[in-house]
Amino acid sequence: MLYGAIEAGGTKFVCAIGDKSLNIKERVSFPTTVPEETMQQVIDFFTPYKDELSAIGIGSFGPIDIHKDSTTYGYITTTPKLAWQNFDFVGTLKKSFDVPVEWTTDVNAAAYGEYSFGKGKGLSSVIYYTVGTGIGGGAIQEDRFVEGFSHPEMGHMLITPHPEDEFKGNCPFHGSCLEGMAAGPAIEARTGKKGQDIPADDPLWEKEAYYIAQCAYNTTLLFSPDVIIFGGGVMKQRHMVEKVHQAFEKMLNNYVQTPNIKDYIVTPALEDDAGIFGCLALARQVNLNSKR
């Protein structure tokens, strides 16, 4: 019994095969190009395991159609990656592999990885954000993703600009939303540098922490989760967590009592592996559900 995992990112795909205990047996990554080329690489990777493959978990860049009664369920829909617009991801995969498939967003998959193996293990309510090229969020409550007519787009919540920040934001839809003010491209647009090239004592990071703290503040009052996990390239700046803690506590002003701040607003235990382990865990879960 083997499980397949596909972390389909806008820049690269990561595919893995895991055993029944979700130990990774083989793993590969390749650039995201066009569907015909990239999906053939996916199929080629899994084909040697076809007879043993029990289920596949997919976490994909989006937006995606998550409703199983929809005629476009399993599609990537209105993505800015033009070649992938309205692409039938799940249908294409099922032509080669007749196994149960779990289909969700890449950030939901990362959330599920931390919920299953990382900082969310043993907790009932987990929120995960990735802060990198874009900002996305996933929420889990009692082993279920929080979703409605679609998956959440928490990275586009509106926030208040820092008093000393004159940057107007670069989100093409909302300008100064969270992603428009705090994602990697917003940092580069302000400074002309990538985040990893900016010193820890640069005043930029106080502004960045102010925005991430607003995200945590809004999340706290909306969901009262057990933990808020911030992953992604921007949060690899280790000094950021303490800055976010300080800004968050000032904003919240003791209005509600959260868990201990060092256990409440955290970075992922699995780091860059949260997504691929989340996909494996989702594959195992959909396989179990298919047998009930």
Rank of each mutant, 00 (worst) to 15 (best):
P31S: 11
E206D: 12
Q214N: 08
K291F: 06
I64V: 15
K81Y: 10
Y210Q: 01
E147Y: 09
T11E: 07
M235E: 06
V14D: 10
P172E: 14
G118H: 04
I6Y: 09
Y73G: 02
P199Q: 15
E114K: 03
G180C: 05
Y129H: 02
F13N: 13
P172C: 13
D19M: 11
D202M: 15
H245R: 01
F223P: 00
Q41W: 02
R144Y: 01
A139C: 12
G175W: 15
A269S: 13
G57V: 03
S21L: 11
C15W: 04
Y264M: 05
F173R: 10
Q237S: 12
G278K: 07
I56G: 08
G74V: 10
Y210S: 04
H162L: 07
Q285T: 06
K95M: 07
A16C: 11
V131F: 03
T11R: 07
Q41Y: 03
Y75C: 15
D272N: 13
R27L: 06
E188Y: 11
S21W: 07
E206K: 08
A109T: 06
K291E: 09
T130E: 03
I43R: 08
P225T: 02
L123C: 05
L178E: 00
K207Q: 13
M240Y: 01
K94N: 07
H245V: 01
C177Y: 01
D165K: 05
I135G: 03
S176V: 08
D272Y: 06
Q257D: 11
F45D: 06
A183Y: 14
V286P: 04
S54H: 09
F46A: 07
F248I: 01
P35E: 12
E188C: 13
R292D: 14
G138H: 01
G120Q: 11
S290D: 08
L280A: 06
A109V: 05
Q257G: 02
K81M: 11
G148N: 14
S224R: 06
I228V: 12
V42I: 13
F13G: 15
V131Y: 04
A186K: 06
V256K: 03
V256W: 04
G59V: 07
T267W: 00
Y115E: 04
I43V: 13
A216S: 04
C279L: 09
G232M: 03
L82M: 02
K193Y: 09
A189M: 08
G118T: 01
K121C: 01
H151N: 08
G137I: 05
S124Y: 00
A213F: 02
V107P: 02
K12G: 08
G113N: 10
F45Q: 06
N289T: 14
H67I: 10
D88F: 08
E188F: 13
K94Y: 01
G9P: 00
S176G: 13
S60W: 11
Q41R: 13
Q141S: 14
A213L: 04
Y211T: 00
T191M: 15
T32I: 08
N108P: 00
W103V: 00
A110C: 05
C177H: 07
E242N: 09
D44W: 01
G57I: 02
V126W: 00
A109Y: 07
C215V: 02
I56L: 11
N86C: 06
D165E: 10
E153R: 00
S29K: 09
L280G: 06
G134M: 05
E52T: 15
R144I: 03
I276G: 09
D201R: 07
H151L: 09
